[in-house]
C-alpha cells in the first residue's frame, strides 16, 4: 500500500485516497472552439508511461482535496506531491 504525503494532512496510507488520472491534462477553456483532435486528446488519449508520472489523487477520506503526485509507475516511488493550485514541472 502506497504511503502518500498529502500536502495538507501529511503522510497517509493509499486507502484514504482515490486515483484521479493524469495530472498534466488541461481542460480546454469553456466557450472556445476546440478541434476534434484536441478534444479527443483531452477526453480519451493518455500516455501509459513507464517511469515518472504526474497524477491526480483525491484525499477522499481525509481533507477531500485533490492533489498532484509525482510517482514512478514501475517502482511506485513517490518523488513529490503538490496542492491542487501548484503547477507541476514536466
Amino acid at each position: 500500500m502506497l504511503y502518500i504525503k498529502c500536502p495538507h494532512c501529511g503522510m497517509r496510507s493509499q486507502n484514504e485516497f482515490s486515483y484521479g488520472g493524469d495530472a498534466s491534462v488541461k481542460r480546454p477553456e469553456l466557450n472556445k472552439e476546440v478541434s476534434d483532435q484536441d478534444w479527443d486528446n483531452f477526453v480519451y488519449n493518455r500516455k501509459s508511461l513507464r517511469g515518472k508520472h504526474w497524477e491526480l489523487w483525491q484525499h477522499i477520506s481525509g481533507c477531500r482535496q485533490w492533489i498532484k503526485v509525482e510517482r514512478d509507475t514501475a517502482t511506485h516511488e513517490i518523488f513529490k506531491t503538490l496542492k491542487a493550485d501548484e503547477e507541476i514541472s514536466l
Binding site: S18, G20, R27, L56, R64, Q65, W66, A84, D85
Partner: peptide, 13 residues
C-alpha cells in the same frame, strides 16, 4: 461531490 470538487479545485479555482 468528487466531480464538483475536481472542477472547483483544479479546473476553475
Amino acid at each position: 461531490l468528487s466531480h464538483l470538487e475536481y472542477y472547483l479545485q483544479l479546473v476553475w479555482p
